[in-house]
Every structure is written in structure tokens, then in C-alpha cells.
Computed example of a mutant assay.
Amino acid sequence: MGLAVAALSAPAAAQAPATPEQLAQTRAIVGNTVARPQTLVLVDVPRATGKARALLNGRDLAGWHPWLGYPDPSVTYRNQPGATSIGTTRDTAGDFAIRRIDGRPALWVKGETWGALVHDADLRDYHLRLHYRWGAKRWAPRLGQPPNNGLLYHTHGAPGAVFGTWQPSVEFEIMQGSTGMAVAVGRDVRLRTTAALDPSLVSPPVRYRVGGAPVEIVNGTLIWNVENARDAERPAGQWNTLDLYVLGDRAVHVVNGVPVMVVEGLATVDAAGKRTPLTHGSVQLQSEGAETWFRDITVEPIDRLPKVVAKE
């Protein structure tokens, strides 16, 4: 790969400001154009081609399967020899549960032990909508950092294949300030978008931009994620609405009605370098250090994607 951060895990790189070398390497990929604010509008929104389906029944976690990573989350990105995932070996009622909040049932994710809830449906060509809000609790090793979670889609492969904690997938990031960011979860995952340089960001200093330079997102390289076009999250304690539109190997991320990311070319790459389009899979909801609530998770079939238009 030949990049300065190739040997670093994605989160390890994310904690460090972009170095002059990383900025120079990023400029070699996206050019010197600095990301200016864009007003992005979602138009030509598709109508559902079939009946909507609720993924949460409001009573229990039927259809969802938990997986937990390491007892000590701080070893997650260290590839520590001998570390063993909890997996499914303990009861997870204290990690994931249906509880009431704001007068309604919702999915509660404690966040202390990292892992995920994985839904058993194999989804393709759909619009997924959910509502989330942050709880009050934060856990080591993420104390003092922005609360972090994620909606992972086109999930495939073995439980715990990624850092002993998640399955390979594409991530619609849920993180304060970065909700809608696109992340490649797993070394076999590839996705493309367009971006411009944003030196204000920690590494990688790239932000989604309509009409920007084409980039490929690959875990373990300099461009392991691309930041959202803008922060559209509501203040802590309020409910947020996420819309994920997926059609084949393309997707659009929308936060509170604001489109913030468009990705395409979703694929897996095998050991021989063969690229296979990634067009379907299950969804995961992460547990990654922050108490989080989810409700009203629905999917409906679509046959086209909405368009994202930039107004400067």
C-alpha cells in the first residue's frame, strides 16, 4: 500500500491529527482543492415498490442476533495475540434490550462492551429509516471522545471477522459531528466516493463533495473513511432520523433530511485481488462506547436511488 498509515488501524489513525506527510499524500490523491461548504438537497426521492417492514417489534429482539467483542474494548484495534472475543458465550440482556424511553419502547444499547446486533434479513435494494438518540453514559476507552456508534450495511462474512468484534460491511457512521461518514469495515471491503481536502480534520483529512475528486475507501490505508459533507445531527438528547437508500452497489446517506454522503462501487476483494460487487447483506447496529437508543427501524423496497444536488 505504501502509505504512512497503512500499518495503523483505522481508529488509531483517527485519533491523531493529520501530519504534514499525510496532508501531502492526501493532496496527491484529491488535489489542492479545499472542501468549501455545499448545500446538498435530496430530490427525485423514490417511492416504495412494496410494503414497508418493521425490523423492531417493540417487544423483544426477535430477528436480531448479538455478538460481543473483547472483555476489554481497549484491545480491539491492537490485533493482540491470545485475545478472545466474548461472542455469544454470555447473556447479553445487559448489553441490548427493549426498554421504554420518552413514553415509547426502543432498542437500548448500553455500549460498555463493544459488539453489534445483527439482523437476520438479507437485504437488497431498499430504503431503511431509523431514529436514534444518545443516552447519558459513556465508557472507556472512549471517555472524553465524541459518542460513537454505527449503522453497518451489506454485512457479510463471519461474526467477529473484523477486530474480533464486527462483520465486514459498509458503515453509515453514527458519531457526534461525523454522522453519515462512510467507512470500510474490514480489509476485504471497497467503496468509492468523491471528496476534497479538509485540513481541519484529523487523518484522513478528506470530506465528501459533489463534484470532488474520485477516491476509493480501503480499511488500513490513508483513506479508510471519508467525512460527511456537513454535520446535520441534532443536539444531544434529541431524536435524529437516518435514511439509508441502497440500490445494488450504490448508496445514499441522509441525516435529518440532509444528504451527506453518496457512495458507489461497493465491492469485496479476495486474496487474489478479484473484485466482486457487494449488492446485499444484513444490517448491524454497533455498540462502541456510548449508550444509544434506536426506534422505528423500517425497510421498504425501492427500484432507484434519490438524486443529490449541490447548491453553492
Rank of each mutant, 00 (worst) to 15 (best):
P168R: 09
T268P: 03
V283E: 02
N148P: 01
T268V: 15
R59P: 03
T193V: 04
R78C: 07
A213Q: 13
R104M: 07
G265H: 05
A28W: 06
W224V: 02
T179K: 06
T193M: 00
D95A: 09
R78K: 15
L197T: 12
E171N: 09
R100E: 06
K274D: 15
L151E: 07
G69A: 14
R190Y: 07
T292A: 14
V258K: 07
A10L: 13
Q80S: 12
L40S: 05
Q25C: 11
T155L: 11
R133G: 00
A13P: 00
H156F: 11
V45R: 10
W293P: 08
A161V: 10
V269L: 09
V118H: 08
V45N: 01
V30T: 09
G164W: 10
T276Y: 01
L107H: 06
S203N: 12
M181I: 09
A52C: 05
T19F: 09
D102R: 03
G111V: 07
A251S: 12
N240T: 08
T279H: 06
P301T: 08
R59K: 13
G144L: 10
N32Y: 08
P235A: 08
V308A: 04
A271F: 01
V75Y: 06
A290I: 13
G31E: 14
L123Q: 04
A28Y: 03
L8A: 11
I98T: 02
T155E: 12
L117Q: 02
G150W: 01
L23G: 05
Q15H: 11
N219F: 00
I297G: 05
V5P: 03
L23W: 04
R230F: 13
S9Q: 03
T241M: 12
A195S: 10
E288Y: 14
V162M: 08
T221Q: 14
V309K: 08
V226T: 10
A229S: 15
A232Y: 12
L242H: 07
N225M: 13
V215Q: 02
R47W: 06
E288Q: 13
D270V: 04
P259H: 05
G50I: 00
P17Q: 11
L61N: 06
S200W: 04
V260P: 02
R275N: 05
R304V: 00
T39H: 13
T39R: 15
G157C: 08
M181S: 14
A83R: 10
D122A: 13
V260K: 02
E312W: 00
R47P: 12
P235V: 10
L151F: 07
T165S: 15
E21I: 14
G180P: 09
A10M: 11
T276R: 11
V5E: 13
W139Q: 02
T279S: 10
